Amino acid sequence: MTATYKRYLSKTMSLPNFEDTVPLMITFAPNWPVRTVVFRVFGTALILSSAAMWVMPGASLSIELAAMKFGSSLFFFLCGLALLMMHHADNQPDAYFDPIRRELRVLQKNNRGRPHTILRRSYETLGSARFLERQVELYDVDGSLLLRLPIQSAEIRQALRMQLSGLVNITS
């Protein structure tokens, strides 16, 4: 074996030390936080109005009117519930940065609540990473934006930067 081949094997076969690197999981944030607030306000209003229909004083309660009232209150309740659950945190996918396999996985919960991998990319196939104040942007090789993730703390930002350094081109 030549010395060059031994260096190649040591670089490709070596795994990172698990004590130095920690896997990171970052949850996606909704694109429009204002839209989320508006949906929650309207959803709450619809749910409250579905209950308020029955407490409001009415003149006479005939069978036909009661059936219409029940149908509309059920419709308001279900629409309000749908608006409240539209951008719920449980519906958002998670980005999992694995330092051992050196890959990024995006996990989405399926109907049973179990995580399902919807995207798997090796660190070497990422174009670049850009760290901003409160978020990180990952770009594809062609320069298009692949992911934009919120970062909650400076510790997570530093750990992710250390994990990607040397494998992904990091821009400021």
Rank of each mutant, 00 (worst) to 15 (best):
H88L: 00
H87K: 08
M68W: 12
H88T: 03
R161W: 07
L78S: 09
L107C: 01
R121F: 07
T27C: 08
R105N: 07
D140M: 06
A51R: 07
F131W: 01
H87T: 05
K11Y: 13
R161Y: 08
N91W: 05
P23L: 03
P150D: 02
L119F: 02
V22H: 01
Q152R: 14
R130V: 10
M56K: 07
A67D: 08
S172F: 03
T21S: 07
Y5L: 07
A154D: 09
M162H: 14
T125F: 12
L145K: 04
L149V: 06
A159T: 10
R161A: 12
E155M: 04
P30C: 00
G143P: 08
R40F: 11
A29I: 01
R40C: 03
K109F: 09
M56E: 10
E155Q: 13
L9S: 04
S14N: 11
A129Y: 04
L160F: 11
M13F: 11
V34R: 05
V38F: 09
G58P: 11
H87F: 13
A89Y: 07
E133L: 08
I151P: 02
G71D: 10
D140W: 03
D140K: 10
S122A: 14
Y123F: 15
T44N: 09
A129N: 05
V141T: 01
Q158S: 12
T44K: 05
A59P: 10
Y139L: 12
A154N: 06
L147Y: 10
L145D: 02
V141L: 07
G43V: 00
D94R: 05
V55M: 11
A52Q: 11
V106H: 02
L107F: 06
S62Q: 07
Y123S: 02
S72V: 09
G58A: 13
R148F: 04
D90N: 06
L119R: 06
P16R: 12
G143K: 03
W54C: 04
P33T: 01
E124H: 13
L83A: 00
Q92W: 00
D142N: 09
L61E: 15
S73R: 06
M86D: 11
N169S: 12
T12W: 08
S144R: 10
E19P: 02
E133T: 12
P93F: 00
G127W: 02
L24W: 03
P99I: 04
G58R: 15
M68I: 08
Q158I: 11
L9E: 13
I151S: 01
T21R: 08
F18Q: 15
V22E: 06
L145S: 03
F70S: 13
R35A: 14
E64R: 10
S73E: 05
N110L: 06
W54I: 04
T36M: 03
M25I: 14
Y8R: 12
I118T: 15
R120W: 13
M162Q: 13
D142Q: 06
M68A: 14
M56Q: 14
S122C: 06
R157Q: 13
L74T: 09
F42P: 12
G80M: 00
N31P: 10
N31A: 14
S60D: 15
